[in-house]
Amino acid sequence: MPTNKKILLKGVQFLSGALPLLFIGPVVINSSFKNKENPLYPFILGLGILFCAAAIFCMFRGINLIMKSLFDGNK
């Protein structure tokens, strides 16, 4: 069963892009909760939630591409 290396590399790139987002998102959310009196509180909180959602999407897409490259082969 051959592996499509192009798709595998793209999946690994998505996973490597998700790694920093997994750390940045919760840090931004935590910092926004510490500064609730700041007028930019809703914007910073939304930005942190967006980072977390992007991390989840990148992880899903990366794992999906890796599974596709392993099991679909060169179709």
Rank of each mutant, 00 (worst) to 15 (best):
S31C: 09
N35T: 13
K75D: 15
I29D: 04
F71Q: 03
L19Q: 14
K5R: 05
A55P: 03
K68E: 15
N74Y: 10
K6R: 14
F14Q: 13
L70P: 02
S16P: 01
N38L: 10
G62E: 07
K5S: 04
I56L: 14
L47Q: 03
N74T: 14
F57E: 10
F14R: 15
F71K: 09
G62M: 11
P2K: 03
L45V: 00
N4S: 04
L47M: 07
G73V: 05
L21I: 08
V27E: 06
K6T: 11
K34H: 03
F33P: 01
V28H: 00
V12R: 08
Q13N: 08
P39K: 03
I63C: 13
K34N: 07
G17N: 14
E37V: 07
G11C: 05
F57M: 12
K75I: 13
S31N: 15
Y41I: 02
I24W: 03
K10W: 10
P26K: 11
A55M: 03
G62T: 05
R61T: 08
L50R: 05
I66H: 02
N38C: 05
S69Y: 00
I63K: 12
S16F: 13
P20A: 02
F43G: 06
S31E: 15
P39I: 02
L21K: 08
F43L: 14
G48N: 02
I24D: 01
L8H: 00
N64M: 08
V12W: 06
R61S: 11
M67I: 12
K34E: 10
G17T: 11
F43T: 12
L15Y: 10
A53P: 02
D72H: 09
M67F: 13
K10E: 11
S31V: 03
F33G: 07
V28W: 02
D72R: 13
A54S: 15
G25K: 01
F23A: 13
I66S: 01
M1N: 10
K6P: 03
K10V: 11
S31T: 06
L15H: 11
Q13G: 13
G25Y: 01
Q13W: 09
L22S: 12
L65Q: 08
E37C: 05
V12E: 11
G25L: 02
N64C: 08
G17D: 11
S32C: 09
C52Q: 07
L47G: 06
G62L: 12
K68M: 12
K68H: 14
G48H: 00
D72I: 08
M1K: 09
M67A: 15
K36E: 11
P26M: 05
S69L: 00
A18C: 06
L8R: 02
L65E: 09
F23P: 03
L19C: 11
N64S: 15
G46P: 03
L15C: 08
Y41K: 05
A54F: 14
N38G: 03
S69V: 00
A53C: 07
F51I: 01
S31K: 09
C52F: 05
M1T: 10
K5I: 02
A55C: 06
L19E: 13
P26I: 03
S69N: 00
L19P: 04
C52A: 06
G62S: 11
K36Q: 15
P39F: 00
N38S: 13
I7T: 10
